[in-house]
Design a protein around this nucleic acid. Structure first.
Lengths: 189, 189
DNA sequence: AGTAGACCTTCCAATCCTGACATGTCAACG
DNA sequence: CGTTGACATGTCAGGATTGGAAGGTCTACT
């Protein structure tokens, strides 16, 4: 349930509308904690009900501005310093690697090479983004650089790990002709 | 919807019961694609309905053994080689780092150091596990080593990134006495 | 016999998340 | 005046995920 704290964090730098927050999520938090509009507006309502933020409408309908309350700030601080961090990762590619025994070594290596290639593209793209930030946006220090650096390092991890996996697959293949690693000796009835 | 393919992958190495599969998830896939009992049995039912696996009951009630069909194997192969990989990552700690402006530099650095410490513990633990695998389990090459290596590299990434973040926070702090990066100048009505 | 513990399946409530569809304001342009 | 596009919110269906409760078998030990 950290969407709640993400919102509190963004709001504690100043009031904002749901729309503003959505853009912040898409731009800054996209690779850290993705969220959709539906989630966001829903959670804003719940935060307001809980008294962690206040709502101020500008006119009968249209833009609403949310601001964090003292209770909200306290909750944020508590979460930041005292709640144990959690993480989930669900990564298709790792899952596939587990089942490489089911396909040929060549296919497996081709797959990993392709992943390296797209990973390299991602690194290039992030590097360009970083250059743009460095050139044009003096304000964008903490958010931008932190997210960017994480993204770069994460992508490089992928590539290096893929290289390692390729070597591993090759080594496994060399021995596999004389290595009966339980291919399928006792199934089927 | 990759739980489906994870199950197909595990089953393509031989038939198994839901219980067996659950243990494989908890042991082998825990950090790659976590799944609970409820999800697992539900998906097994759906896979059987779709004709991708067969069910064979041993007696009226109790253990059921699932085996992958040719259609299931085809589906697995298709997914492995032709479906574009996806990944989601939701990581509390990164989110917190975004909001370090809300707490003191000392608190922030203490937090990151603590994360480094627990990260180091995780690396130690994984290294021990790796040693055990190397010592006792000659079979456990592909699964164990691939997952282990990923875990190790991922944890080291955390630690190195935290070190980088500490430097970043310190640098930001040094300038912050003369740098009003919108701390909270216009909120509160 | 009793009971503890591993084995095994089923079901459910609640929440989270995704991807839409629907609605409406407002400024700019032709 | 019509239309395009950015701004802005609300809502809903459906699938994914979590965390449990409940019930049944079988073996081994006391």
């Amino acid at each position: 349930m950290s969407l709640r704290h993400a919102l509190l964090g963004l709001l504690s730098e100043g009031p904002a509308s749901g729309y503003d927050l959505l853009k912040l999520f898409d731009n800054s938090l996209a690779n850290v904690w993705p969220a959709t509009q539906s989630q966001l507006y829903g959670e804003l309502g719940r935060l307001a009900d809980a008294g962690l933020i206040t709502v101020q409408s500008e006119g009968a309908r249209g833009r609403k501005e949310y601001a964090v309350t003292d209770a909200g700030r306290a909750e944020l601080r508590h979460w930041m310093l005292e709640v144990k961090p959690t993480w989930i990762q669900r990564y298709d590619m790792l899952l596939r690697v587990f089942f490489f025994g089911q396909i040929s070594t060549d296919d497996a290596i081709a797959y990993l090479r392709e992943q390296q290639r797209t990973g390299a593209e991602a690194v290039d793209h992030l590097t360009e983004v970083g250059q743009m930030i460095a050139d044009y946006d003096d304000d964008f220090t903490v958010y931008g650089r932190v997210a960017l650096e994480w993204g770069l390092r994460f992508n490089r991890l992928h590539q290096e790990w893929a290289e390692w996996a390729i070597q591993e697959v090759k080594a496994h293949d060399r021995s596999s002709s004389a290595d009966p690693c339980k291919p399928s000796d006792e199934h089927g009835a």
